[in-house]
Amino acid sequence: MNVIETDSLTKYYGKSRGIIDLNIEVGQGEFLGFVGPNGAGKSTAIRTLLGLISPTSGSASVLGLDIGKSRTEILSRVGYLPSETAFYNGMRVSEVLELSARLRGIDCTKEAAVLCERLQLDKTKKIRQLSLGNRKKVGIVCALQHLPELYILDEPTSGLDPLMQQEFYNILKERNSQGATVFLSSHILSEVARYCGRAVIIREGRIIAADTLSVLSAKGFRRVTLKGANVLPLIDGISEVRREDSEVTFAYRGEAGKLIRALSDLEFDDITITEPSLDEIFMDYYTAEEGHR
């Protein structure tokens, strides 16, 4: 059974686009990154899954339950961290954590204490006195303290210092290894590459790629530099051409064999073919025009 499954999920806000024809499948126990530039529709997709907004068309199920019909049941088994966490004024951290637990009808005191300890969150402080990062931690504890089966996290590490990010991911990894599924949106690609087994890339409301990270980067382009030449191989898939003195650099998308054969007709002194950085790969997915793939 898929933990999250969407079928042509579409959301328009009036005439403006939210998400279009989204088909996502997240399997049990996956650690999945949901990646895309700002405004691509990540939060819209997440909010639809949680029933905060209702889809314009299409359907989706979470934990095998229909998002429209079984909203409360889904929410009781999901831990959600919003991208911008806001809490009630005048409350203390401990009161917020307790309110969250009570709204779920369960006692999470022990787990909350463990999480606060690990994330170094002072429960006696008032929410108002907390920094952005510490406020984020309150949201994290709210999302994690009831030991849900599925974690839906919207940009979970924004505002956290690197040490805390590390600890946060350690906790998530532990939960994941105990069988929980993690679905997190992010635009910090290095963390997605590091922790997520698979990534779904969304752009302008549509899924443009979904695969393991090794496959995603393999599908990416190669950067080729030819020294002592200023002609290009005569094949398709060449872009971003830069010429400097006696050197030409270009990006190549396509089969490596074709490139090598085309290069063999050229005269040059030296060649480097490099794999682009992860950021470049994602950037390429974000900006790529239809014709490229």
């Binding site: 929410l75 959600y80 911008e84 009630y88 709204l103």
Partner: peptide, 12 residues
């Protein structure tokens, strides 16, 4: 106050 997201993502 942006607390709707907090409240409405609890099982109620």
């Amino acid at each position: 106050d942006n607390t709707a997201e907090f409240l409405l993502t609890h099982p109620i």
